[in-house]
């Protein structure tokens, strides 16, 4: 990173921009978030532990972490493949496909939620099945797989939400990869597969890891696309954000705060991890988006 030294350049506005930036971030981000600490402080430690280790909470941690992990893993496999295909091969409508990858960023989560639920559920009135309504659900039901209102449904929604994070992390790195390395490896008689795993993949690992962490972090906090398809059954298909939502609806703000603190701790750890990965790889690519 190259920083512009302040002394000689007479670029104006340091005080003004600094003041406004700090004021805005303090009032709109830090003050609201500090409420979690203030509210949390009125909880005794034993009460805090009691809330966050209740059976219902543990069940939702298992679901949230498990489903987020599986979804992020699926996204790593298919996201890397999509990035590879987009960078290396030519095919019709490539630009359209490339743009479509960002759909989960652009489509409101509630819309994704009700659409996925409709596609994957099994309609009660079997005569009313259109291809967009219960089509996947009915097909999968025939081979004994239920998606809507099961943990599998949560995973499907989280795969949808997380895909662009992996593609957009891996794509730029793949683009910048020097073809000389591969050519050298191929010239020396290594097979295509060997070249991929020994030469290309090691270069992609930091990008894949950061894509995984971003997809995982987003999946943990995701609410809109999951609440419809999960069915929200306590102990079975209740994710952590929903646990918070339920407490809020019961005006149990202390309980909600306890879970929010747990989630925030996990999010910050993941954020540090992402920063560490991009620092470690010292590759300057855009991590989100």
């Amino acid at each position: 990173m190259s920083f512009i030294s302040k002394k000689k350049t007479a670029i104006p506005g340091f005080g003004l921009t600094m003041g406004i930036t700090i004021l805005a971030l303090s009032l709109l981000v830090l003050l609201p978030l500090s409420m979690l600490v203030i509210k949390g402080a009125s909880l005794s430690f034993s009460k805090f532990i009691e809330i966050i280790t209740s059976q219902r909470a543990i069940a939702s941690y298992k679901l949230s972490f498990g489903a987020s992990f599986i979804a992020a893993f699926v996204n790593v496999v298919f996201g890397t493949l999509v990035a590879w295909v987009l960078v290396r091969y030519k095919f019709p409508f490539k630009r359209v496909v490339d743009a479509l990858v960002d759909l989960p960023f652009a489509l409101p989560t509630a819309v994704a939620g009700i659409t996925l639920t409709s596609l994957y559920s099994v309609p009660v009135f079997a005569d009313n099945i259109a291809w967009y309504n219960g089509y996947f659900g009915v097909l999968l039901d025939k081979i004994g797989i239920k998606v809507a209102f099961t943990p599998l449904g949560v995973i499907v929604a989280l795969i949808f939400i997380g895909l662009p994070f992996v593609v957009r992390s891996v794509q730029p790195v793949l683009q910048d990869l020097e073809p000389e390395l591969e050519e050298a490896s191929l010239c020396m008689g290594a097979s295509r597969a060997r070249t991929f795993f020994k030469v290309i993949l090691p270069n992609l690992i930091p990008a894949i890891l950061s894509g995984f962490s971003l997809a995982f972090a987003r999946a943990l906090g995701e609410y809109g696309s999951v609440v419809f398809i999960s069915g929200n059954m306590p102990m079975k298909t209740e994710i952590i954000p929903l646990l918070i939502m339920t407490r809020l609806e019961q005006y149990d703000y202390l309980g909600a705060t306890a879970f929010a603190i747990v989630m925030l701790a996990v999010s910050f750890t993941l954020m540090l991890l992402v920063n560490f990965i991009s620092f470690w790889s010292s590759n300057k690519y855009k991590s989100y988006n």
């Binding site: 003050l31 979690l36 929010a260």
Partner: peptide
């Protein structure tokens, strides 16, 4: 990095 649910709830606490 913050879950949208938390982003909303902090304003209720405030």
């Amino acid at each position: 990095a913050v879950s949208p649910v938390i982003a909303g709830m902090v304003f209720i606490l405030l």
